[in-house]
Simulated scan of single mutants.
Amino acid sequence: MNTQVVPFSQLTTEQIALWGEMQQTNPELVSPYFTPEFAQHVARVRDDVEVALLREGSEVVGFFPFQRTMWGVAKPVGGRLSDYHGVIAREGLEFSPTKMLRDCKLSAFEFDHLVASQKAWKPFHADLKPSPTIDVSEGFESYLENRRADNARLMTDSLKKEDRLTRQVGPLTFEWNTTEDAVLQLLFQWKSAQYNATGVTDIFSFDWTRKLIENIWKQGNSPQFSGVMCTLRAADRVVAMHFCMRSGSTLHSWFPAYDVDAAKHSPGLVLLTQMARHANQHGVHRIDLGKGDEQYKRSYANSEAMVAEGIVESHPFRSVIRKGWTTTRDLVKNSPLAGPARAPVRWLRRMREWLSMK
């Protein structure tokens, strides 16, 4: 198998159509992150999006989109914004990740949301994590019965909180996809405040991330790819919103936010319940909540997809060096030096987060 690397902008119409067909027919790739439209939107706001075309002879059999860093390390398209990544191909494609990286002149590929079912990557998995999902394919009432049977109190209690929010704030209005620009700007405001309050890098302080979200939201309601802004109002006041991406019958949670002044009513959970209740009416059977062990995800989810964390090195020597560093780091973490080392490690982590968004 040979690999050809091109900027996304140089893909032909036929190649983009083939990418879309592979994504739509492979059940491993239902997430909107695997669509050519998502990569295209990122390429419109960044100039470092490339695509490896995997070829058998003259036939393209797979696509591997990535962003090339200044150190020759590949990261997923969208960087920290990517909740799924991998090779887009038909089921069962066999390929060598290390050879692919060498052909791309890449030193490594770091991943944290790699679709775990792709066998070629499995030797490079360092850890597996669940991405909790809400499956409402059998209807909301069936889903609700399942959650009650599992004693998922956080989810079932949200029904009571709907009533309390209505009584204490005002009548509730749910909208599946608002088109009001003021709601999007409010999302940016609330999320930035959340990031700053929790001490993590504010991803919306970068112009390209705001443009990306705006472009996806404004692109229109395509059945294969679109942005969806679900909102909840109480007495005409926005108390929660949830920006998602959709591909086919899958809706992926991306940026949930709520009014902290209404926090005691859990408006974010009330909104998520409304989304699950109305999903089937809009052709959505699955809501992916994204990787994470938050309590609300455990309570709402009745299924999950597995994603992998790890790294692929294009040359064995680099792998040996990295393993040596990892061993040393783990020894320090379990030694009396752990305390003094914590502050510089936190600084380095913040710096790495910031660089990952550049």
Rank of each mutant, 00 (worst) to 15 (best):
Q67Y: 03
G199Y: 00
I134M: 05
W354R: 14
F243L: 14
M155A: 11
D47W: 07
Y195S: 11
R318T: 03
H252Y: 15
S158Y: 03
Y33M: 04
T35C: 07
P223L: 04
N177G: 09
E21I: 01
A108C: 08
R237Y: 14
G310F: 01
W190C: 08
P97E: 05
L128M: 10
K264A: 10
P336S: 14
W176H: 13
H242W: 01
E180C: 06
P65V: 00
V87A: 08
C244Y: 03
V284N: 11
R153N: 14
R346D: 13
A43S: 08
F111P: 01
D261Q: 10
F63W: 03
E59L: 02
N177Q: 11
L331V: 15
D112Y: 15
Y84S: 04
M357Q: 14
G79Y: 11
L106F: 00
P32Q: 02
T326Y: 15
P336N: 14
V45P: 14
V5P: 00
A234F: 13
D259V: 09
R46C: 07
K191H: 08
L271D: 03
T250D: 12
G86L: 02
V312F: 13
V6F: 02
T3N: 11
L54N: 04
K161Q: 13
C104W: 00
V270M: 01
I88A: 03
S58Y: 01
D236Q: 12
P132R: 07
G220F: 07
Y296E: 08
D135A: 00
F8I: 01
M155E: 07
S299W: 11
S142W: 06
L81P: 07
A305C: 13
L128I: 05
I88S: 02
K119Q: 07
T133Y: 15
F317T: 04
R246S: 03
S142E: 09
T327V: 09
W19A: 00
R233Y: 02
L53K: 05
N26W: 01
K218D: 04
E309C: 08
G86E: 01
T13K: 12
V51T: 09
L54W: 06
L172R: 01
V73W: 09
D103E: 04
E304K: 11
L101P: 05
N26H: 05
L272K: 05
V30Q: 13
R329S: 14
R102M: 00
A279P: 01
T3Q: 10
R80V: 13
A116H: 12
T166L: 02
Y258C: 01
M22S: 03
R46Q: 12
V115Y: 05
G283W: 00
G86N: 04
Q281W: 11
T179I: 12
